[in-house]
Design a binder for these strands. Structure first.
Lengths: 349, 349
DNA sequence: CTGAAAGCGCTTACAG
DNA sequence: CTGAAAGCGCTTACAG
């Protein structure tokens, strides 16, 4: 009840009439404590309002009770600077903080530059300073093997978002192919026969997988459908240029899937300019779902990545590995297809 | 250069042929180190890639090099859950992380429940666990004197966002009156003669100040103007109800300032339904500026709070107090009036 | 200007 | 099942 300014494990030990090691055992749910002693200790803890000092635990034990999540510095700062929201960061914090709290852990969020030498140095420094029990790498860091190597050297468990090798690290990703197939099917089921996929950069793995699934789905389920793949390079401007051509044609696509919101907005923009009705004459689905898509006219149907769930899963496994040992693994988390008004309702849906 | 898995202050001392206290002095920029010795130590640090362990510094010294920023748990989680963006959190992190980094500090972000007994207990626990060098309270916690009291007891410096008493704490706020006057003047300058202020909850201090400034500005600068103050309670629905009446009148206001985005959206919504053109027949300004306002049709003119700047200033002062002593103070940070398309251009502007 | 000692609050082996 | 000892990597007085 009473909460003195600084209650230490010694104070608890004294009140409970045991040694501080016994108190430590109770705190860490160690075995070998007689129930009645355990109860006495727990009561003393409650009475004094004792909470273990994290730094001291770290020093004594070696566990830091910290999971560090790492984001790309430049892109994050640019988003923040623009003030236009940064749902990725929010969802990371959401999934990470809530999961960590469950296990008595805390999430530390850090920014690291993408350039490989800077990245390695910065990660190395922050590891020495913080000594986290696990590190979560998000794109583009998740594709940087130097960082994985560094973590391995230091004996710190790693998780990667958007990878699914599941070797040394805990890999968490969403099922790009399934999501793409689902989006494609929605267009087919609502009557579209000429489809286009507005793809991001060619070298971007997830994008490749989505395009492939798009192709396979159309081939398999609608033999006489037409399909196009356009390379919009994640850019609004480039997408506008492409679509000015494509949507002006007689045999223009009537259903488009875009790899990110910017390109989806581009499709809406060009459609508006050409007087093409959305969703009737052109349906649009985006693969990103930043907050802005709710406010476009009409609001965009989107594949919602399981960002929070991926980070939560990463935290959970990292903490488990730190406690019980074990190695990496791969997890595919479920996405959601959020139907808004840029696509038509499915018959009977 | 080489970065052994665990380089300690002892290693540096050995390489530099000094005691570890001397290394400590160099790290902490203490006085009384001969330049040549200092250089030798710095070289050893660089050579070994030494970075001090934060937990050990905390244990030895008493400084944690951590600033903790506290947000309302429920509201934050709801926003995250909705996935519609949370610019407040993003701007806090932006201002806080970048400022802390400058001083070798880290920002720790925490959620605490608003109910007063829960809040006190949760803050007390996290203080014991983390021992931050300073704590930043955001609304509604910044109005909770229990928390300030607790911080005072523990000898931890505090900062409050949205307060401006500047007693024990470092208070950071924006100039509500100036911002309100500025918004009002924009409406007057673009020809509006019947103005309305769509206010939030009555008990909310900033809201009161804005309304007062609105009244004074209209009285002072346009004697024959009409003005109305409506109590929209921060709610879209309540605002819609009010405006359905007000905007249907012959002598309806042609310029509206709203305390938050929801109510501003309500104004746009009702205007659209009644066929009132924005911004010509009705100009709208919001006092919130969440990311969504960029995507409304037309995008909303808004007062942009200096959230990042307020948190950065709070961090700066908190770190300064921890280092040099000193007491609270009050700072008013500059807002911005971001003119988008829900208001008309000023003549000659 | 520099170093030897003590201590921060815990945990991890190691005894009993 | 419980406790006495040593140590984690630093910093803070205190000597010299």
């Amino acid at each position: 009840m009473a909460s003195k300014s600084r209650v230490t494990i010694e104070d608890v030990a004294e009140v409970a009439r045991v040694s501080r090691q016994t108190v430590s055992r109770v705190i860490n749910r160690g075995p070998n404590v007689k129930p009645e002693v355990k109860e006495r200790v727990e009561q003393a803890i409650a009475e004094l309002g004792y909470v273990p000092n994290l730094s001291a635990r770290r020093m004594g034990g070696g566990k830091s009770f910290l999971i560090m999540a790492i984001n790309d510095r430049q892109r994050t700062l640019e988003n923040w600077e623009a003030g236009s929201g940064n749902d990725w960061v929010d969802q990371m914090l959401y999934g990470g903080m809530t999961e960590c709290e469950k296990h008595g852990y805390a999430l530390v969020f850090r920014l690291i530059d993408a350039e490989r030498d800077k990245a390695r140095k910065q990660l190395s420094d922050v590891l020495s300073s913080i000594m986290p029990d696990g590190v979560i790498l998000t794109p583009p860091h998740s594709a940087n093997d130097d960082l994985v190597e560094l973590l391995k050297e230091r004996g710190i468990a790693c998780a990667r978002v958007g990878k699914r090798d599941g070797g040394h690290c805990v890999d968490v990703a969403m099922h790009e192919e399934a999501a793409s197939a689902e989006a494609t099917r929605l267009l087919l089921e609502t009557g579209h026969r000429r489809l286009a996929y507005l793809a991001g950069a060619d070298g971007y793995g997830p994008s490749r997988r989505r395009v492939e699934a798009f192709r396979e789905t159309v081939s398999a389920e609608c033999a006489d459908c037409e399909m196009t793949v356009l390379d919009g390079q994640f850019s609004f401007e480039i997408a506008v240029d492409l679509l000015n051509d494509v949507l002006a044609r007689e045999d223009r696509p009537t259903g488009i899937i875009a790899d990110n919101d910017q390109m989806a907005f581009a499709a809406m923009h060009v459609a508006d300019r050409l007087g093409i009705q959305v969703p009737e004459a052109l349906s649009v689905i985006t693969f990103e779902d930043t907050p802005g898509v709710r406010f476009s006219v009409p609001p965009l149907t989107a594949i919602r990545q399981p960002t929070a769930a991926m980070i939560a899963k990463a935290c959970e496994k990292l903490i488990e590995i730190r406690r019980d040992g074990g190695t990496g693994d791969a997890f595919i988390l479920p996405h959601r297809l959020v139907e808004r008004d840029s696509t038509m309702r499915r018959p009977g849906g």
